[in-house]
Design a binder for these strands. Structure first.
Lengths: 356, 356
DNA sequence: AGCTTACAATAAAACGTTTCACCAGAATTT
DNA sequence: AAATTCTGGTGAAACGTTTTATTGTAAGCT
């Protein structure tokens, strides 16, 4: 007799011998309900294994605890960690997340945004593929949007990012101070704002050191080719600074393949600190981004908007930390003091990035 | 005058001068609609930027293109990659994913499952925290469920996993064949099925080699402590084989901290091949799991069930590949042939895991 | 011309909720 | 005791869709 279907509020009401309105009141903690009725309802809920239908609930109440998250690539550990933190925070505030990856493709990003809109989320957190994000946001989207990590061309969004320029500048200053005279800067694409900011930071900070930029694209075999050619070409630059995660992986592998030793043949530093960078010998000097903090701030920002706070869009920049390791310490003498894992650590505070 | 709200199908109907039913018919590609009306509707849709409300749509049509995905930890690159692949495949079939991470906590997993149920998904793909998953599945959940990677205690689920035992056995056989006589096996917890299977595989394959198991838990400082103590204790085992990703990271770091050299002081191998394992020198011998293929199979399995195929639950095992690298090649002579990245590679086919 | 068939479009019901207006009875005030 | 205010509960409308049944009209048959 029991219809084998997921139980509805009506079935709960029937079983408890009350009206559906009462069930709804109990479930939503409305105060005007007697303890006796509440118990009967709760019993029925438990016996039936009833769980509210959020779709129907949202439809009627016009309020939803759902936020969309769009990242360029979920397999990038930075973004994965960002999403994971976000998800935890959302849960604490009783929100759900629908997460999508744009796979580094602006078309796909636009498509995903449209799709996410169909769920009528209460808000959106996006790490955009590129600066032209605003054009891809569907027209007539009224929920608040917080952007993270990358800066859009158009203003008007809440924004949370790191201080790419100064942090990259600190690495440049470090290399400069070590006496390196030529530095090859490698990055995926200057069309990505943080790569661009890092490159500008390097240029601003390099004093006696000559710097030169090489763009190798995202997943671009051609770019990888060009990088290899450059690395086989003499004279080598004294140092190499890679501006993003994908590029670092590619560059480091290429160097090993060619047989270049770090820092013997050239020094090496990376923007983005990955776990393996302190496992290789020598460890790799890197900029560590406060990715969890970025997620926290993004969530805080969005939550504020979702709960109705108006006001001008805000922009926040977070401080990065610099991890100096063996890969940029040329002489054996210098290196000796830094064989321990972790290496020297600069936590940049009030007087950041001052050359040593 | 225009109500600044997200447009509904009614507004589209009004603007196009037709009924809402007609709009719905056009949008869902029903054949019985004249080209003229279709054009008018499409125009109105475009002008208003209308996007269907999936919640309302599902509510009425009782069919949803939503599937839930639950993984133990999104920051684990294996799982991140699993999710990313899944998301891509789902998109191709026009499904949406709601992804949640259980953060290695069975309580949280149960909670997330209940929450996901409130969205009325058409199906579920789960990498369970532990074997007792079935108990945490909400009662009265009728959508098909596919489990991946880890084996539940209770039967009755479609299941896709890798051949943990034979693959781990292959590593053990390799070490045995190299002449190592003592091997310390380190893993997070035998309560996780694949760790258990790997340990059993090692025991079955070790012939002359003596093996010993050490469980260090998940995020357990105490376990890490015990591991360190063992590594400071003489005599060292000839080899160390770490059975999962987290443990490998912890172990490798501990060895470096203590100052043990690989493979000089002891050989080292890992279950789970991470990108950095071919970047360190020497490279680390590892079992590589076909994680994308696992996602593909999981999706195929679920899709079959969602489109109505009945029948007994199926279990599928995928083959792992073994990457032999410098970390298990003791003599300099042997090592010489393997300094290149990538090392020796066993793609295990018909005659898998036979000791060399 | 009359009668059926086919077609295109619509009105209205339904999906599972929440909310609003309302109601009966009890408790309080006058 | 009558009038008022609470109190705890309910019926019914509404949310934005899809679907079913129905209508009106045009076309095809004798």
């Amino acid at each position: 007799m029991s219809k084998s279907r997921t139980p509805s509020i009506k079935m709960v009401a029937d079983r408890a011998g009350v009206s559906v309105a009462t069930v709804s009141n109990v479930l939503n903690g409305k105060p005007t309900v007697s303890p006796d009725f509440a118990r009967r309802v709760n019993d029925a809920v438990r016996e039936l294994g009833y769980v509210v239908d959020l779709g129907a609930s949202r439809l009627r109440s016009r309020k939803t605890q759902l936020v969309g998250v769009v990242v360029p690539d979920l397999t990038n550990p930075m973004f994965a960690s960002f999403v994971s933190t976000l998800e935890h925070l959302a849960r604490l505030d009783d929100y759900d997340l629908v997460v999508v990856s744009a796979r580094n493709d602006t078309e796909e990003e636009a498509d995903r945004l449209r799709k996410i809109r169909a769920w009528r989320p209460a808000g959106l957190i996006v790490i955009p593929c590129d600066g032209a994000f605003a054009e891809r946001l569907p027209t007539g989207f009224f929920a608040p949007v917080v952007l993270a990590d990358r800066i859009p061309d158009a203003a008007g969004f809440d924004l949370i990012a790191v201080d790419n320029g100064p942090a990259a500048g600190a690495i440049a200053a470090h290399l400069d101070g070590r006496g390196y005279r030529d530095c090859l800067i490698v990055g995926s694409s200057l069309s990505i704002s943080n790569v661009r900011e890092r490159w500008e930071g390097v240029q601003a900070a390099a004093r006696r050191m000559h710097v030169e930029m090489l763009e190798i694209g995202i997943d671009d075999a051609n770019g990888a080719q060009r990088l290899e050619e450059r690395l086989r070409c003499r004279p080598l630059p004294g140092a190499l600074f890679s501006l993003d995660h994908g590029t670092t992986l590619l560059t480091y592998r290429a160097m090993a393949e060619i047989g270049l030793s770090v820092p013997g043949d050239l020094a090496f530093a990376s923007f983005d600190d990955m776990e393996w960078m302190q496992l290789v010998a020598p460890g790799i000097t890197a900029v560590r981004q406060p990715i969890e903090e970025m997620a926290e701030q993004a969530w805080a920002l969005l939550l504020r908007r979702m709960t109705g706070s108006a006001g001008k869009p805000v922009t926040r920049r977070l401080r990065c930390a610099i991890e100096i390791r063996g890969s940029t310490l040329r002489s054996p003498l210098e290196e000796a003091g830094n064989t321990k894992l972790g290496g020297e650590k600069w936590k940049l505070q009030d007087e950041p990035y001052s050359p040593e």
